[in-house]
Design a protein around this nucleic acid. Structure first.
Lengths: 351, 351
DNA sequence: CCCAGATATGCTCGATATGAGTATATTTGA
DNA sequence: TCAAATATACTCATATCGAGCATATCTGGG
C-alpha cells in the first residue's frame, strides 16, 4: 500500500468550483445525440464481409452500417442500445460485441441536405459466425475489401498501392499544407511511407485507420469531397478509392478492421467467426482472410496446437481434395491457462 | 480488387426505413450530455501519479478526474473539448492524449443527492513529463496505486491480494448470483483466478479494468455501495479497498492504467513520461513504476538499445552512487524504421 | 592514498521460439 | 493404378530471451 507521502499538493490559486460547471446546470447547449454504429463482421467462403444497410430500397441509396441513436430512457447500456437497433434493423442477435471508438468531429457527419445536428458516433465491432447470418432480414453482406481494396494482401501486395495510391499520395505530400500546421511530429512523406509500406518500409496490417485517415486528408476518398474538403484540396478532381459509406461509417469500419486484425493475435476471437468444428486449414484461411498474407502452413499448425487453442474432435473431414483433415474445436480451457491466448502470428512479417 | 461477386443480397422483408429513424426527428428524448474525463498521468520519483481534483476546496470533498461537458458549439472535436477543460481546470496544456473508452451505464453516475441526468463519459489518457507539472494551478497528484493498491507489484506480490482480496472474492464467488445470469461464459471462481493471478494463474498486469470491475461486482469498492448495489450484496458490510473517486472516474482510471501498461510495449509512449535525457536505469525505473515487476537490468538494456529506441547523447550522469551512467535520448527515427516500436517486455513474465 | 561498496556496462550460455524446408501419409479422380 | 492434391510429421539453422558472471568506474570513509 502506498502511503500518502507521495501525494503532492498544488496551490489552488483559482478557487472557483469549475469542476462541476456545466453538468446539470446549462440547459441544452451541451446535449448531443449519440449514434450507435455496428460493424458486423463474418467470414463467408474465405471472404471477410460486413453487414451494410441502405436508407431506402433504392439500390443507389448510399450504404452505411446499421445504426440508431442511443435512447437513455429505453436502453440501460450503450451496448444494449446497439443490440436493440441491430435486432430491429437487421433481425440479428449479436453475439460477441466490443466497443471501438467514439467519433465526434464536426463536419464528419454531413450528408447532402442535412440539417446536421451534432452527433457523436460510437462504433462497435461485432463478430458472428457465417452460418448464423442466414436469418438476416435486411441489408447486404459486402466484402470489407470492397471498401478498402488496398488492404487485401491475400494475393500479394495489391497493385493499386503502387499504381494508384502511391503517386497521388506523393503528389499530395508535396503540396504545401494550407495553414501552417502546428508542428506535425512526422512529415507527410514519412507518414505515407510508414502507413502504406512504401520505399522498403514494412506493411503493418493493423494500421487500417491510419491509412484511411491519410487518404481522407489527401482527398482520395469520396467522403472527403462530401464533407467539403474538396475546395481546399484539389485542382483537378482526383479519383477516389474504395466504396463510400454514409456519415463516418467507413472510418468506423476501418477501426473495426484494424481492431479485428490486432485482436485475433492475443484473444481467441477468431473462433467467433468459425463453426464449432473446423480443420486447421480452414482456420488458417479465416485468419488469412482477415490479416491478408499467406502463412506458413506447417508452422501455423504448430502455433495453434502448441498454444492449446484447439483440440481434435476425433472426426475427420473428407473430400478436401487429398488426405482427410482432422477436425478441431476451440479449446475453451485455454482461457483458464493463458492470460492472452490468441493466434500469435508475428506483426511485421508480411511482405 | 475484390469483385462484387462475393456480395450477398438478403431479401428485405421489412421495408420501413428504420435506418434514419430518430436522428434529427425525435426531439430530445435521445439527447444526452457527454462528459469528457482525463486521466493525466506522470511519473514523479518513480511513483506513477494521476491528477485528481476536488469539487470544492474542502479537503474532504470527493476526488475525481478533471472533466467537463462536451460543448458542441464551442468544441470542434471531442479531444479539443477535453484539452480546453483541462486547461481551464488545471492550467495544464496537455501533450500526448488518447481516447480510452465511452462509459454509459445508467446508475454509474449517481452521486448522493444528484438529479442524475444521463451522462455518457468519454475517458481519455494523457501522459505528461514530470517536469511540466509544476505549472499546475489546482488539483493534487496522487499515486495511482492509492486507488489500486493491489496493482502495485514493485515490491513483489502485494500482501493485500492474499490476505484481503482473495478470501472476500472467494466468499462472493460462492454466494449465488441473485438472478440467474444469462450463461456467464466463465464462472466467478475462474474469473477471480485469472484476473487476480490466484491458484497458480499468471498475473497479467494489463487486466486492471477487469480486476476493478470484479471488485465492483463483489461490492468490495466504495463506488458499488454508492451506486446502490449495497442492498443486494452484503449482509455484513465488507471492507472496501483503494481510494474512491467521484462518478465512474475510478473505472476510467483503471482503463487508463491498463492501456498505459499495454501501450508502452508497442508504442514509444514511455518517453512522454521521461525528460529529454535520462539514464537507462531511470528509464527502467519508469517502466517498472508503470508495469510493476522488477526487470532484469542487463536484459532491459539489451532490449531498448537493440530495438533502436534510444541513442546516447554523449554525456554522462555522475553521482549515481557508482560508475557514471551514460545519458540517452529517445531516438525518433525508430518511428520510421519499425511499425510498432515499444518496450517489448514479455507479458506474463511477472511473478 | 586505497579500499569497500555501489552502480554501470559488457558478455556468455542454455532454453525456447521462429522461419523455412524436407519427408511422409492418405485421399480423390483420371 | 498412379498422379495430383492435401494433410501431417519432423528437422535444422537462427533469433530471441532469461539468467548469471565478469569487468568498469565512480563515491565516501579510514
Amino acid at each position: 500500500m502506498i502511503s500518502d507521502a507521495n501525494l503532492r499538493r498544488i496551490p489552488r490559486e483559482t478557487l472557483e468550483p469549475t469542476a462541476r460547471r456545466g453538468i446539470a446546470v446549462r440547459p441544452d447547449t451541451s446535449k448531443v445525440e449519440i449514434g450507435l454504429n455496428a460493424a458486423i463482421v463474418a467470414v463467408l467462403d474465405n471472404e471477410p464481409v460486413v453487414l451494410a444497410v441502405r436508407e431506402s430500397t433504392d439500390a443507389s441509396a448510399p450504404e452505411g452500417l446499421p445504426f440508431g441513436p442511443f435512447e437513455p430512457l429505453e436502453h440501460r447500456t450503450l451496448e444494449g442500445g446497439l443490440r436493440a437497433w441491430v435486432a430491429e434493423q437487421a433481425g440479428l442477435d449479436l453475439g460477441y460485441v466490443e466497443q471501438l471508438y467514439s467519433f465526434g468531429d464536426r463536419g464528419r457527419h454531413a450528408e447532402p441536405g442535412d440539417a446536421a445536428p451534432h452527433v457523436v458516433s460510437i462504433g462497435y465491432l461485432a463478430l458472428t459466425e457465417a452460418s448464423h447470418i442466414q436469418e438476416l432480414q435486411r441489408g447486404l453482406w459486402r466484402s470489407w475489401y470492397h471498401y478498402f481494396p488496398w488492404e487485401d494482401w491475400r494475393k500479394g501486395r495489391p497493385d493499386i498501392l503502387e499504381t494508384e495510391l502511391a503517386p497521388r499520395l506523393r503528389e499530395w505530400a508535396e503540396r504545401p499544407p494550407l495553414k501552417a500546421s502546428p508542428e506535425r511530429p512526422v512529415r507527410r512523406q514519412d507518414r505515407i511511407r510508414m502507413c502504406f509500406g512504401l520505399d522498403g518500409a514494412a506493411w503493418d496490417e493493423e494500421k487500417v485507420l491510419e491509412r484511411y485517415e491519410l487518404l481522407y486528408e489527401a482527398g482520395l476518398v469520396e467522403e472527403a469531397r462530401r464533407d467539403g474538403r474538396e475546395a481546399s484540396l484539389s485542382w483537378s478532381p482526383p479519383p477516389r478509392f474504395g466504396g463510400m459509406m454514409r456519415f463516418d461509417h467507413r472510418r468506423i469500419l476501418a477501426t473495426a478492421i484494424g481492431r479485428t486484425r490486432a485482436k485475433i493475435k492475443y484473444r481467441p476471437v477468431i473462433f467467433e467467426l468459425m463453426p464449432g468444428e473446423f480443420t486447421l486449414f480452414e482456420l488458417q484461411k479465416t485468419v488469412e482472410a482477415i490479416l491478408g498474407p499467406h502463412l506458413h502452413k506447417q508452422n501455423f499448425r504448430r502455433l495453434v496446437e502448441g498454444a492449446g487453442l484447439v483440440e481434435p474432435t476425433g472426426d475427420v473431414k473428407t473430400r478436401t481434395g487429398g488426405r482427410p483433415a482432422k477436425l478441431y474445436r476451440f479449446r475453451k480451457e485455454v482461457l483458464l491457462e493463458r492470460p492472452a491466448p490468441g493466434v500469435r502470428v508475428k506483426p511485421g512479417r508480411v511482405q
